[in-house]
Amino acid sequence: MTEISVIGGGSWATALVKILTENKVRVHWYLRRQEQVDAINEQGVNPDYLNFVKLDTHYLVASSDLNHVLQKSTILLFVVPSAHFPQLCSTIDAESLQDKKVITSIKGTVGKENVLPSAFISNYFGIPSSRQAVLAGPCHAEEIGMGKKTYMTICSPNDVFLQHLKPGFSSRYLSINLHTDIAGIEYAAIYKNVVGLVCGMAKGLQYGDNFMAVLVANAIYELQLLLEGLHVADHRIACSSYLGDLLVTAYSPHSRNRSFGELIGRGYSVEQTQNAMSMVAEGYAATQGLYETAKNLGLNMPIINTAYRVLYNHMAVTSEFKLLERNII
């Protein structure tokens, strides 16, 4: 891979652009705000996210013109919040994507139907899964920015596409695992953000390590239950792209979902928490999507239920955790 178009201007997009440009992949980067574009093109720094990272501008051109960026490469990487994805797609001419391959790293269900990002792209643009790939963790943007050892998973049913992408994302500090289970990886990436929220709530409520260990153990069981209910269960859930991604989000101080949940646990309202955070916590929107999915499948998932009742039914977090205590083992 020698060239790619990246759509999205947050910390994860910035981390991915860092990796790509380090590997001398030419990046055409779409960001909404012109001040970000100017700072990146002139200084090689995203002023709003990971501003300690110096990007190689020899392999990078930023632009606020979405259509221009989409036209510049045959491979597109979408790194935007799931809640914003349908509106973004509505501004794109579907015919302009017919010869493109699409990578997504979007960790939430999309639209009122709560579909996976890959399914949304297939339905909206008519792009089959054979021309799609998904990037997943476990990895935090901050640690990639610092060059700390990280493992990333790239998923696609198209092995040729996987092999084409791998060199562009591999580096001395980044090991790449290849996988074919797009749906399983996407659902795991979405669910782990809800787990991060609930673990953050527990921390805000001052639960200790003993309770947290039981909470995460139950989350692992819930993830297995969800994947089996969706018929996308993998025989190796205890690997980096499933369990590893869940654990890093549950425990890491870099997790914005954990930070979001911690504020809720400390008594902040959803609105106050959203205003206090400079970055989007995907777990908030993911909670609603997964709650509806689990309900439709007839699954009893106490952790998802707790997150939903606190965030969307505005139930008291203290009383909901007392109920959760009785529903986990």
Rank of each mutant, 00 (worst) to 15 (best):
E3S: 15
E3Y: 01
I4V: 15
V6L: 12
G10Q: 06
S11T: 05
A13I: 08
A15I: 02
V17R: 04
I19A: 08
T21G: 07
N23A: 10
K24F: 05
V25F: 01
R26T: 13
H28F: 15
H28L: 03
Y30G: 08
R32E: 12
R32K: 15
Q36V: 10
D38A: 12
D38G: 01
A39K: 13
I40V: 15
E42K: 14
N46M: 06
F52R: 05
T57Y: 04
T57S: 13
T57A: 06
H58P: 00
H58L: 13
A62V: 09
S63G: 08
S64I: 01
S64L: 00
N67P: 08
H68Q: 15
Q71L: 13
K72M: 14
F78E: 11
P81G: 10
D93F: 10
L97H: 08
D99C: 03
I103E: 03
I103P: 03
S105H: 02
T109D: 01
V110Y: 02
L116D: 06
S118W: 04
I121W: 04
I121H: 09
F125L: 10
G126C: 12
P128A: 07
Q132G: 09
Q132E: 14
A133F: 01
P138S: 07
E143A: 00
I144N: 00
G145P: 02
G147K: 10
G147R: 09
K148F: 13
K149A: 13
T150A: 05
C155P: 09
S156Y: 06
V160N: 14
F161A: 00
F161G: 04
H164A: 11
G168D: 12
F169I: 03
Y173C: 11
L174C: 14
N177F: 12
T180K: 15
D181I: 11
I182C: 12
A183T: 07
A183F: 10
G184A: 03
I185E: 08
E186S: 05
A188M: 03
A189G: 15
I190M: 10
I190F: 06
I190Y: 06
V194C: 02
V194T: 05
V195G: 06
M201W: 10
A202G: 12
K203G: 06
L205T: 01
L205H: 01
G208V: 05
D209Y: 12
N210A: 11
V214G: 09
E222F: 07
L223D: 09
Q224I: 08
Q224E: 14
L226G: 07
L227N: 10
L230M: 12
L230T: 07
V232G: 01
D234T: 13
C239T: 14
S240E: 13
D245P: 00
V248M: 09
A250F: 13
Y251G: 05
H254Y: 15
R256P: 02
N257T: 01
N257M: 06
S259I: 13
G261F: 09
G261A: 04
E271V: 09
E271R: 11
Q272I: 03
A276C: 11
V280H: 11
A281G: 07
A281E: 05
A281F: 10
A281Q: 09
E282N: 01
A286D: 09
G289M: 04
K295A: 12
K295F: 10
M301F: 07
I304G: 04
L311D: 11
L311M: 13
H314S: 12
E320F: 06
F321C: 05
L323V: 14
I328S: 06
I329K: 14
